[in-house]
Design a protein around this nucleic acid. Sequence first.
DNA 1: GAGTCTCTCAGTAGGCTAAG
DNA 2: CTTAGCCTACTGAGAGACTC
Length: 373
Amino acid sequence: MAGAVEETERGPLLVVRRRFPLAHVHGDQPLTALRAAAPECLALLARDGFPPPGPERLLYLDTETTGLAGGTGTYAFLVGAGFVDGAEFEVRQLFMRDLDEEPALLAALEGLLRGFEGFVTYNGAGFDLPLLETRFVLGRRRWPGDRFHLDLLPAARRLWSGRLADCRLATVEQHVLGFAREDDVPGALIPAVYFDYLRGKHPGELPRVFDHNRHDILSLAALTGRVAGALTRAPDAALPAEDLVGLGRLWERRDAERGEACYRLALTLGLESPGRERLLARLAWGEKRRARFTAARTLWEEIVRLQRAFELRPWEEMAKIDEHRRRDFASAHAVVSEALARARAAGAAEVVLAALTHRLGRITRRLGGQPGR
DNA sequence: GAGTCTCTCAGTAGGCTAAG
DNA sequence: CTTAGCCTACTGAGAGACTC
């Protein structure tokens, strides 16, 4: 943590600067990809009202704190901020050597924040930003929160939760960016490392905390480049099927047709079993919403063919379409009879059997009133 | 035409999960 | 330990269709 003590308006502060050429490759992702990320793509990922700046006008932010508890008792003792500067990417780390240096840290941080048009964080909406805002208020400073904020956690969940065991930054980093950390400090140990340092004033494990924070910042930037890049390109058959599903989920909100194009491409790539049925159901709901009932029914049929365990939903939807849209009571009757038989065989719950029996009774009555279709 | 049944859609509550 | 965002399931009002 070779840094320099710099003078701020509120006293001295240790600042560590590390600069990387934009050609720097983090995992398998070059930072230059940031340049190609269009603001519209960033807007797709965030949903606050602020206009998205270009990725070079964003500050990539991550804090190391004395705990998770939030509230007034938790300090952000190390704040890492990354940004594009010319042909380089700088990671600037602001560190309080003691708790009484917080005013200096906040002063330096405020200057930095005000120089950018937005922030990128990982779970920052739930953690870093509220915490920093509290520190600003307690330090009698105005929090510059009137800016674009992209929290990559919700975006990562939409994109990769189907493929990854969890969406912690370390997991995403490893499997999406191909970046493996060596000798990383687990986040849960970081508060203890800082308290040890405060007691003894020896660096101890602190350099590893700085490394951890710097890696977080680089991952944030690399991930932004990766995600925005995926959104910029047309749906790409070279992507894993699960990633296409995730891409579809991102697009769906903004552009349903484009989202569906991703879904359908994923299906052609041989998506595996539980995910495949989920996706078919998603498409079926979409078709229903647009009143394309025949298309919806075809999708429910395919789900039924794939499903191993009995599930009510597809049968129910097929029966609704037959009875209420196509008015083909005979077909509706056949669907519900078959569903009832399968439900009994599978030992389905009593409420499920009751619902099907009720439906079958009604259809039978209507069939009686309109015989020989 | 009144009364009943069914579906739909919008709003929302509860459960999960990231962050140090 | 806290907090926000997403997902799923549930609820209830309103619309439409059917029955008598």
